[in-house]
Computed example of a mutant assay.
Amino acid sequence: MKIAKISDAEYEIMKIIWNEEGEVTTADIVEKLGEDNSWKLTTILTLANRLVDKNVLSLRKEGRINYYSPNISKEEYKSYQANDFIEDMYDGSVKSLIASLYNTKKIKKEDIDELKDWIRRI
């Protein structure tokens, strides 16, 4: 299944839904976003509807209440996006990604040692 890329704002909504057990209502999302969030209810509904359109969320309506549940897990989304990133940016080469991180000093010796240990175990 192809998983659509979601925006940063949509990802904020998904983090809330992924952290909950079972279905989440629009009111639950508003509450979890907290008072610091400046999004209006219409913005939240628009973002949730986009996620439904992208088949990332399922929607069940009961009267005027929307119940949302994830169609994919956070791990599935992250894995798909990581693979897509490596394919797009490094022609599918994990080695090129690691070399880029090493050359720009974004990866430490400890990280490399952990990767070597992990590779030996698999």
Rank of each mutant, 00 (worst) to 15 (best):
K2G: 07
K2I: 07
K2H: 14
I3E: 00
K5Y: 08
I13R: 09
M14N: 02
I16N: 02
I16M: 00
I17K: 00
I17N: 01
E20T: 07
E21L: 13
V24P: 05
T26G: 10
D28K: 01
D28I: 01
V30R: 03
E31T: 13
E31M: 14
E31S: 04
L33T: 13
D36K: 08
D36V: 10
W39S: 13
K40D: 09
K40A: 08
L41A: 09
L41Y: 08
T42D: 07
L45D: 02
L45M: 07
L47D: 04
L47I: 11
A48R: 10
A48M: 11
R50Y: 13
K54R: 01
N55Y: 03
L57T: 03
R60Y: 09
G63H: 03
R64E: 15
Y68T: 02
Y68V: 02
Y68Q: 02
S69V: 11
S69L: 03
P70N: 08
N71F: 07
Y77T: 00
Y80P: 15
Q81I: 12
A82V: 06
A82H: 13
D84Y: 13
F85P: 11
F85C: 04
M89F: 14
D91R: 09
K95A: 09
K95L: 08
L101M: 04
Y102I: 05
N103E: 06
K105M: 06
K106C: 15
I107V: 14
K108W: 05
I112Y: 09
I112G: 12
I112V: 04
D113V: 13
E114C: 14
E114G: 15
D117W: 04
D117H: 15
R121W: 06
